[in-house]
Amino acid sequence: MVEHTMLMTAARSTAPELRPLLSVRNLRKYFPVRSDRLMGPRLLVQAVDDVSFTITAGETLGIVGESGCGKSTTARLLMHLIAPDAGEVWLGGKRLGGSGGFTLRELRRNMQMVFQDSYASLNPRLSVRDSIAFGPRAHGVPAEKARAKARELLGLVGLDPGQFSRRYPHELSGGQRQRVNLARALALDPKLEILDEAVSALDKSIEAQVLNLLMDLKRELGLTYLFISHDLNVVQYVSDHVLVMYLGKVVELGTVDDIYHRPRHPYTRALLASRPSMDPEARIDRSPLTGDPPNPINPPSGCRFRTRCAFAEAVCEKVEPALTVCSAASGHAVACHMHIDRSGHSRHG
């Protein structure tokens, strides 16, 4: 009987799953900030503006974009660590609140996050074991069981429990700390794992190890990843789909193949062109990205990228380009007037 159900779940998990696990619609967050002037108007940082995407169970969605474009804010909105101003987050066909919806606790059990800063996200006063066991403990698992779970997870992320379970964060290397963070994020058996720059702070060689660990874990535990990074190479390596953000907006969304081999948006192209390449042949003199992104407090009207875009025209200033599907087969979508029919832009493609 038991074997039978196990077989069935095994069969189910190997079958191609296409249902969306996470679906985000029109997510928006504007942070109020104090103006420089006393009694000045309240200003808003448009950190995340009208972001929508879905993640299919079992896949990895990569989010790329320059620093400050709203990647971490998106992650924190998904976890409901900050309240969205607008938008909906659906996980496995359910949303937060209401009848038949998730409670916050349930949501956070199903969706976990590895934070950007491996050191700051571990309590310096708690041993590795206690940090990992904290989540299960908070969900009512008895202390002994939670600790056993912590040891088991340490083994899973490649750290010897006998050696590491009673250490403190400052007694670990960066790679070891991020493994501990990963173990903690797995402690509640989540379905979706948000990895916010999970490997960015690591040495290249350690980074590769942790990436491989992530890929192994994903396969073994049947996880789904939202992988945030500003490193295009890493995103290409791990992702199935990629979402490109610019100043709080989604500018391009597509399969890894689409984004890396058939990029449409001038920003995506510039990002790809400006990444360091080992191959001198591949070093192109195409205009790489120059200057800093504009202030998210007063983003440019129309297309937010127009201040840095070589193809900006009058229409780009007046009309905001909507995210438009340009390849129905792969679902490749881009927000640029050059790729919208009858947009008024002189170029096309």
Binding site: R76, M79, L81, L104, R105, L107, R108, R109, Q112, M113, F115, Q116, D117, A120, S121, L122, N123, P124, R125, L126, S131, F134, G135, A138, H139, N181, R184, A187, L188
Partner: peptide
């Protein structure tokens, strides 16, 4: 404001538990 408090919130723990385990000690 530290990440580990946010991480504790992300694990679904209640406010009181977070204060007791993560804030007081620090």
């Amino acid at each position: 404001a530290m990440d580990f408090v946010e991480a504790a919130r992300a694990s679904g723990a209640g406010t009181f538990t977070i204060i007791r385990i993560h804030v007081l000690g620090n």
